[in-house]
């Protein structure tokens, strides 16, 4: 079993990875929002997808000549 999710610990570790200084005063709000995001992520991760389910944005190299 994975460890239970600790939003504050995750926020501090991930912020260090991307070079984001995270003020201790902002940490509780960030952790709370990560908690909401985790609830939303649980919903999307539960959707059964197949290898044929492509992502929504389709890269277009340029508009074809008219």
């Amino acid at each position: 079993m994975p460890n239970p999710f600790n939003p504050a610990a995750y926020a501090e570790a991930a912020a260090a990875l991307i070079g984001l200084p995270l003020s201790p005063a902002h940490l509780p709000g960030v952790a709370a929002n990560l908690g909401v995001a985790a609830q939303m992520a649980a919903i999307v991760m539960a959707v059964p997808l197949t290898p044929a389910d492509e992502a929504a944005p389709v890269f277009v190299p340029a508009r074809p000549p008219a």
Binding site: A11, A15, I18, G29, A41, M45, V47, D53, P57
Partner: peptide, 28 residues
């Protein structure tokens, strides 16, 4: 604004796994 700041900050930290799944769910 404190209300938006904490959401934007959290938004920089989301796992790529979730985002790519979200983009595929969006298409589905």
């Amino acid at each position: 604004d404190p209300a938006t700041r904490d959401r934007f900050l959290a938004g920089t930290l989301l796992p790529a796994l979730w985002l790519q799944q979200a983009q595929r769910v969006r298409a589905a």
